[in-house]
C-alpha cells in the first residue's frame, strides 16, 4: 500500500479503515466499486496533527 503523507503537516498518516462511500456518482466505477455498490475509499488519520484524508482505492 502506498504511504499517505499528511497534506497539512507532512507526517506519515495511518491507514486505519476501508469504507464504501455510497454515492450517486457512477462515473468511473471500478469492478470492486460495482461489486460493493459504492466507491471503496481508504481512510487515513495523522498522528501528528489529527488530519483526516480519504483516498479512493485504485
Amino acid at each position: 500500500m502506498q504511504q499517505m503523507m499528511c497534506p497539512r503537516c507532512g507526517a506519515q498518516m495511518n491507514h486505519h479503515a476501508e469504507k464504501v462511500e455510497f454515492s450517486s456518482v457512477r462515473d468511473g466505477l471500478t469492478a470492486t466499486d460495482r461489486t460493493l455498490d459504492g466507491i471503496l475509499q481508504n481512510v487515513y488519520a495523522c498522528p501528528n496533527c489529527g488530519g483526516i484524508e480519504m483516498r479512493r482505492v485504485s
Partner: peptide, 8 residues
C-alpha cells in the same frame, strides 16, 4: 489511539 497508531 487506534486511528492514529493501529494500521488496518
Amino acid at each position: 489511539h487506534g486511528r492514529e497508531n493501529v494500521a488496518l
